[in-house]
Design a protein around this nucleic acid. Structure first.
Lengths: 121, 121
DNA sequence: GGAAAACGTAACCGATCAGTTACCAATCGC
DNA sequence: GCGATTGGTAACTGATCGGTTACGTTTTCC
């Protein structure tokens, strides 16, 4: 299943948002949803196949964490459409602002080793 | 059907790309696809419901054109995930570059009123 | 006026999806 | 060792999806 299909499901999008706050176990993820744990397990499988998450085995637990690389395809697609389309200028400005802020945050995070478990090699 | 589901289908993504080159009629859009015209019609209906396209009635023809506003939601979602995730720096740099270029192209396009049908590539 | 073109919709169908329950394997804590 | 916890998978099911063909309507053009 490709990335676009993977993020088409609202439950999966919610899972990704949860994981954007840091790694989590399956029970923890499932605890926040009205659907059963096996259903979550299968959603995680789909996300894994799409490359959007990865699991670290820790004994009987699996710690899932977010992987954002595949999102590049989505971003590229959206950018492509927005580039040549009769859109109002402010949309792109908003995007540029977003990116500037993101990059700044990112740099700050990299300079501050006290974040969570990610040591960017 | 929400925007994420709308862009989950490869045919619909292709339609959006086609329309990013300018408005087009249903027959023209269908001509580039191996699927039947009614199928295209229904894809266009889904895209319309998602707000991603809009049709101008011109006699017996309908000229569909792209609307990018709903894509904001997708961009926001992706940005949100990428902001706080252990990603390598070069991804954000790539995004920043993309945006810079996009803005520049956009300004140039706005200054040049004569771009319309495909024939761009 | 009538054929042709453009396009939407209805009816149908097979495939896929997302959910459930039931079950099994592995690991942890006492 | 043993019960409890964690989590994956299998089997089943109802719903949705995407495709097709058939058809109806409107507009264009001779």
């Amino acid at each position: 299943m490709d990335v676009f299909a993977a993020i088409a499901d609202p439950v999966r999008r919610e899972l990704l948002v949860q994981l954007s706050g840091g790694p989590a176990r399956v029970v923890d993820l499932a605890g926040e949803h009205p659907v059963s744990r096996p259903a979550i397990s299968r959603h995680l499988r789909v996300l894994t196949d799409a490359g959007l998450v990865e699991a670290d085995e820790r004994g009987r637990e699996r710690h899932y964490r977010l992987r954002t690389e595949p999102l590049t395809e989505v971003r590229t697609f959206v950018s492509h459409l927005e580039r040549r389309a009769p859109i109002t200028e402010h949309h792109l400005d908003a995007l540029a602002t977003e990116v500037r802020r993101t990059t700044r945050d990112r740099r700050r995070a990299a300079a501050t080793p006290n974040h969570h478990q990610e040591n960017t090699a």
